[in-house]
Design a protein around this nucleic acid. Structure first.
Length: 115
DNA sequence: GAGCTGACACACA
DNA sequence: CTGTGTGCCAGCT
């Protein structure tokens, strides 16, 4: 029925907003000096396979956000920004400020990954 | 509706 | 270890 279509779509919409919120929560819960990967966050939120979506959500964060987005890196233990960019330098700097050691742009997940 | 494009991940060479 | 191919999925053309 027509009304069901509307409810269905709004339900999907609210699910997506809910996912955004869960992603924010998960990122906010990463302790100082630890990191998590995109895929890991997606899984924790109950949405395996949504690694890329985690990235788009973080991208849409306001520049002045208090969320520790710098603690989110890719599965290779590297920043996902191009190596010369401002964002890249920014992320590396923030991580180093938390005592995380980065060697040749690589972070040892075996040491710093938050489970 | 059909492609393209990413702040991704994984397997394999 | 680095490069390449493939799968993935929401958001934008």
């Amino acid at each position: 029925m027509f009304i069901d279509k509307i409810n269905e779509s709004t339900s999907i919409l609210s699910t997506m907003n809910e996912l955004d919120t869960m992603i924010w929560q998960t990122v906010a819960d990463i302790p100082f000096g630890k990191v998590m990967t995109y895929g890991q966050i997606a899984k924790r939120c109950g949405y395996p396979g949504y690694a890329r979506y985690v990235g788009t959500v973080l991208k849409n964060l306001p520049a002045n956000t208090l969320l520790p987005w710098h603690r989110v890196i890719n599965a290779q233990g590297r920043s996902s920004f191009p190596e010369g960019s401002d964002k890249y330098a920014m992320q590396i700097q923030c991580l180093r400020a938390e005592g995380i050691v980065i060697h040749n742009g690589k972070i040892q997940l075996s040491v710093y990954q938050h489970h």
